[in-house]
Design a binder for these strands. Sequence first.
DNA 1: TTGTAGGCGTTATCAG
DNA 2: CTGATAACGCCTACAA
Lengths: 353, 353
Amino acid sequence: MATIKDVAREANVSVATVSRVFNDSGPVSEETRQRIRDVAARLRYSPHGGARSLITNKTHTIGVLLPDLYGEFFSEVIRGMDQAAQRHGYHLLVSSSHDDKTEIEAALLAMRGRVDGVIAMSPHLDAPSLVANVPATLPVVLLNCPVNGESYDALTIENRRGAYEMVRHLAALGHQSIAIIGGAAGNYDAAERLEGYRAALKRLRIARRDEWEIDGDFTEASGHRAIARVLALDNRPTAVFAANDAMAIGALCALREAGVRVPEDIAVVGFDDIPLAKYMSPPLTSVHVAIADLGARGVETLLHAIESKNGHTPQRQHLPTTLVIRRSCGTPAEGERPPPKSASRRARRPRIT
Amino acid sequence: MATIKDVAREANVSVATVSRVFNDSGPVSEETRQRIRDVAARLRYSPHGGARSLITNKTHTIGVLLPDLYGEFFSEVIRGMDQAAQRHGYHLLVSSSHDDKTEIEAALLAMRGRVDGVIAMSPHLDAPSLVANVPATLPVVLLNCPVNGESYDALTIENRRGAYEMVRHLAALGHQSIAIIGGAAGNYDAAERLEGYRAALKRLRIARRDEWEIDGDFTEASGHRAIARVLALDNRPTAVFAANDAMAIGALCALREAGVRVPEDIAVVGFDDIPLAKYMSPPLTSVHVAIADLGARGVETLLHAIESKNGHTPQRQHLPTTLVIRRSCGTPAEGERPPPKSASRRARRPRIT
DNA sequence: TTGTAGGCGTTATCAG
DNA sequence: CTGATAACGCCTACAA
């Protein structure tokens, strides 16, 4: 590959001048500028990003660490991040499918010198292990991570409140026996949603039963399996709350196979409100989460931290959730039909605490 | 951040020795090795990837250029890439949502010096524009791109054959009026699937009608809209072939709302066989594509090209598709039920032409 | 077994 | 306006 030196030699100037042309830094006579551009084009020269960032100390890249995510949640969060990054001239160095802690720490180390900041999403990632593995100067934003008063920027979804309100809605519809299909063990979101469920039951004085808390792992298949367990129960619940939409969809499928009608015989609701939810049969009632927005806002927050190196006080942002009532919960949803384009995607400003 | 010099000074050795320790290159006495490790740990030193790659001329990163992809297709292809990359100690520099040519060319340039190779997926990316923008020495793999005898590695899906066989299956079931909901205009996969559809009609001597070729854009919403058009037709088709599953799902929803039964009144089939397809109501017949495999194989191919810099002869690989018959096409699918885990995901070896 | 010195491709700081 | 030259952080002969 042609380097800046080749261009300089070929154009009879110094490398400094070539550099100035490519960075619009400092004055260059129009004549030489043109000559340099020509030579560069002829030699197919383009600046070497790595070398450049070595001296500028800016990579214009942000590292993204993700767990093994499922389906549309994954694509939405990445899409949000990428678009926000692109808007600001940044790139994404992605490393996903990290399910254990050492893996993610290794990835974190490998990013040293390649990124200007990191945005990490991991239920297993606690502040102490971050502190131990991340250069103190590297800005970090935590997504959906358990944070406890540590000094990192953190974004979380209002899982607990979302679950709480969903249960309240079901109760308002008359349901007194509500089962939950939980998310992956050890998953932060899953734990919070479960807590919200339990809190609501307690508050509303609805019976809680161990056999109504069924394990899942956020996949459709696990939702499908969970229904087998539900149907085998003596005291069958009248409503099933899946901790995400994928499991709710698996559940819908299993119930249909079993000849159980939704919502007449049993209500089913989900969490996340993925784009597909409204196309289900029946359309799925869910807790809406602005997933792409979560990613975008994560990036924005990180960039803010990067730009204001000096004294940036870490923030904790909670993205609000909203109930989206469709037919699967039994509420007659008048006028509810798949809109041509998601109108409900519009972001509300998050509460910042 | 601590540099190699800091460590060297603190440990009373030269930078060369520290380097040897961190690269297992050359002999170092056990004693000093330990001392260096200790100091490095204390100083939280980790090698600066950028600087390292400047001299080794290896970034251990591969650039990924993607168009604006939808839903599960996106997440699956990235997952496949990431896992393959990780297996080989590589990272992914992702840049997505590129819908026009200049955008993608800019992204390509920006990757200069940051990646060891590029894997690009774009209907708009033709070989000439690649040649003009990519340093000749940078290995490139094209995914689902129109290639015509150029000298790049290329991977494509057997879109035409997949569509052809789907139509043949529908015909075998007795359908003589088959509509298609096409993919995004200008999209390569979409065009190929349409061709396969037309070729099959011709071959099977089934009537083709302009009003049976309805525009879509690969989104659920467009599939939903398309059905409105279908239902308004005088001569309503008995089967609808959506060019991807998302549109098929939108179509299923619209038909249900209209009170049209699937498959009794009209058959619906899709393309891609996304994980959700089997959970639809009715379970969706589709053309299975090993999406994650496409990504993984793309990475493997690229790494192969990278490793064998000298004389690597570009290959053209076609990933085969398979018909997955479920209930939405009207075939009584005995024994078909959502398996706990996708058995059909196993990859078949692609034909290499 | 260890150290010295040159260089990877750029940008930044000075002089001219 | 332009040109030397010193960094940036690291690796790698070559020498000791």
